[in-house]
Amino acid sequence: MNLLQVSALLLAGLAGGGLNAVAGGGSLITYPTLMAVGVPPLHANATNGIAVAPAYAAAAFGSREHLAPQRRRALTLIPTALVASVCGALLLLNTSHEVFERLVPFLVLAATLLMAVGPWINRRVTALNGGRDLHPVALHAGVFAGCAYGSYFNAALGLILMAVIAMSLSERLQRVGALKNFCTMIVGVVTSVMYGVWADVAWWAIGVLVPATFIGGYIGARVFQRIPERPLRIAIVLYGLVLSAILLVRAL
C-alpha cells in the first residue's frame, strides 16, 4: 500500500458514495479503481462487496420510517433475500479467476446499460402493474434474482431491486426504496460474512473505502443533489461503456 493507491481509493470512494446518493452506479467507480491499484478482478469484486455493505446498512436505517408500515412484508422477504445472497456468493466463490476475468466486461456492460435504462424501466413497470399488487410470487422471484445478482456482482443492484419491487407492488416510491434498502442490507451482511471468511479480500482497501464512501454519500446528499441527474447519468453511462470496452480488450 502506498500513497498513490490510498489517494486513488479515497477519490473513488468519495465519487462512488456521491453517485450512489444521487443516481446510483458507485460500484462502477470503486470496482475498477480496486483493479487499478493492483487487486485482481475476482478479489476486487469481493472486496468491493464488503466495502459497500456498511453504506447499505446505513441506507436501510435511514429509510426505517417508510419500512415500518411494511414490516410483515419485509419479514417475509428475509428468507428469499438470504437464500439468494448465499447462492450468489457461493457462485462467486466457486468461479475461477480466468472465468471471472472473461465475465467482467459483460457484467460491467450490463450494469452500465441498467444505468442507462433504469429510469425508463421504473416508469414502465410502475405503469404496467396498473395500480395493483402482483402475486407475491412475482415479488419474491424478482427479489431472489436481484439479490443473487447483487451478491455475485454488486454494480447496479439497487436499480434492479427498485425495478422488480416497483413492478410487483403498488406503493409510493419512498416505500419501494425502503424495501430495496432492506434487501440490499441483507445482501451486504451475507457477502461481508462469506467473503470475509472464505474469499481473498484486500482489507487495507476496505479500510480506505468504507469511510470514503460514507463521506461521499453525505456530500452527495447535500451537494451533488444540486447537479441535474440526467447529465450525471449520461456521464456515468459513457464512462461505463468505455470501461467495458477496455476490459473486453484486456480479456481477449
Rank of each mutant, 00 (worst) to 15 (best):
M162W: 03
V143L: 06
P136K: 01
T112Y: 04
G158V: 09
L139D: 14
A116P: 01
A127M: 11
G88V: 04
Y149Q: 10
T76Y: 00
N129E: 14
L161D: 08
G130K: 10
A145K: 00
T76H: 02
A81F: 07
N154V: 12
T76V: 13
V108R: 03
W120L: 09
A155S: 10
L113P: 00
L92I: 00
V99L: 13
L159Y: 06
V104Y: 01
A127T: 12
L107A: 08
G130M: 14
A111F: 06
L114A: 08
T126C: 04
G158H: 06
R132I: 10
R124E: 09
G130R: 15
M115T: 11
T80R: 08
V143N: 08
R132S: 13
L90Q: 04
F153S: 07
L93R: 01
V104H: 05
V143I: 12
F144N: 06
V125Y: 08
L90G: 02
A84M: 04
G150S: 11
S96G: 15
H135D: 15
L77H: 00
M162A: 12
P136T: 07
S85A: 15
L159C: 07
I78E: 10
L113S: 01
A145L: 06
A148R: 07
N154W: 00
L93F: 01
L93C: 05
L92M: 01
R132Y: 05
C147F: 05
P105N: 11
L90K: 05
T126L: 11
A116G: 08
G158I: 06
V143W: 03
D133W: 13
V83C: 14
L91F: 04
L157S: 15
T80Y: 00
A110V: 02
A111K: 06
C87F: 02
H97D: 15
Y149G: 04
T95I: 08
A141L: 14
L139H: 10
A81S: 15
A156T: 05
L114N: 01
S96V: 14
N94A: 02
L91R: 07
W120I: 05
R132K: 15
G150P: 02
A145I: 03
N129K: 10
R123Q: 15
L134G: 11
L128E: 12
V125E: 10
H140E: 12
V125P: 06
S151W: 00
H135V: 14
L113I: 04
L93D: 07
A116M: 06
H140M: 11
A116R: 08
N94V: 05
L139N: 12
H140P: 02
L82S: 12
T126N: 09
E101L: 14
V108D: 00
L128F: 03
W120M: 03
F100I: 13
G118H: 10
H135N: 14
P136N: 07
I121M: 09
P119H: 13
T126R: 13
N94R: 03
L128A: 13
R132T: 15
T126Y: 05
